[in-house]
Design a protein around this nucleic acid. Sequence first.
DNA 1: TACGACTTCTTCACCACAGTAAGAT
DNA 2: ACATCTTACTGTGGTGAAGAAGTCG
Length: 416
Amino acid sequence: MGYICDFCCEQPSIVYCRSDAACLCLSCDQSVHSANALSKRHLRTPLCGRCNFQPAFVRCAEERVSLCQNCDLMGHSTSTSNLTHRRETVNSYSGCPSSAELSSIWLFFSQSPSAGESTCEQELREMSINENVERNSWCPIENTISQNDNGVAEVNHDRNVNVDSRSTWDGSSNPELGSAPQFLHQPAGTTDTSLTKLSCPQTKYAGVCEDDLYDDFNMDEFDLDLEKYEELFGVTLNHSEEILENGQMDSLFGTKAMSVTDSYCQGAVAAEDSSPGLVNGIQPAFSNAASADSMLSSKTDSILYFTARQDHSSFSFSGHTGESNGGDYQDCGASSMLLMGQPSWCPPSAEGSFPSASRSDAVMRYKEKKKTRKFEKRVRYASRKERADVRKRVKGRFVKAGGAYDYDPLNPTRSC
DNA sequence: TACGACTTCTTCACCACAGTAAGAT
DNA sequence: ACATCTTACTGTGGTGAAGAAGTCG
């Protein structure tokens, strides 16, 4: 990573793609991520305006600069005056948004330039994006950002979450939670059912976010900053726990284990009812995509699992590092899903409030989707894939060009 | 409870061929 | 040192076989 675009090596880099582990200028970002459906799903984040190295996760309104976690901590924890700076989370995006669409994601993108803003952001504003690039996958209709009563921007979106939620907070509220700003301005008792996954904690019942259950869930959306988690809960990472694999999920769902989404929502319900302070402390640790950006940039290969002890008195984490890449954990759905039983912060009453019919429905949908889910592998050579995609086959095997075939990918209904 | 039969699920080899790397000329 | 040619190897996706795992009587 560096200040120059990793792809063209000419333009200054503007955004960071975690899946590609690359810093890109906007033009290359467009061309690279319009290549295929997989690349369109890569989440990108603007680069830190200070170090130009790490993906930014927060924007300081006073300094008008986007900052990574480290720079934010450096800049806002050392001075008491800086501590009160109002900060906003920086949205990630996927697909191929136009400059106008980026404006809606990053509000500062449309603000007037100022001397104080970073070079990156000035260039971001000045650069134009090739509007001819196909950008079907980015659906601004499904992703609208609105302001709630508290002035906190919300992202309403349908099934595809392309934009992380945006919120504001000031460093004085709780410096310890600096890496996790979501919902800190959200009154604990408010309920906004228009919010979906990222806003799940605000929903009254877990069923509200049912449609998203298991489906679009991945580490990009479920962000867990382990270090912060340790700080928050004082747990120690255990690297030797067993991995809960996909095949085990069915039985788990049917018994004691719950999906993170479940626990997440139920925890929020509990927090609404009893302990607003608790949910404020918990939610950000799970919902801050930007902190995951920072984390994954340095711990890119970590796939995290944790299991809950049945006694609810403690839980342990598992961190497995392998040769996987960003795309692996990003896209593999359930395999990257964190599984856990009822967390220690979730009182038993929450689970009891979950309608059994909804759960069974959710499990059924999960199983169906699991069947049809394509666990995408990383395609290293797109050209080879293109050829393979059009190559005729006999019983799945490639046949010589011009030879008899029983399956033509270009015309599946026709065979000879 | 143990066992066999059956079903369901998972893993892997197979195929052709364009592209790449390494070595030879 | 450089260019050209040859050879070996790689990696794509759909299918079926084989084995593992689960279910039922």
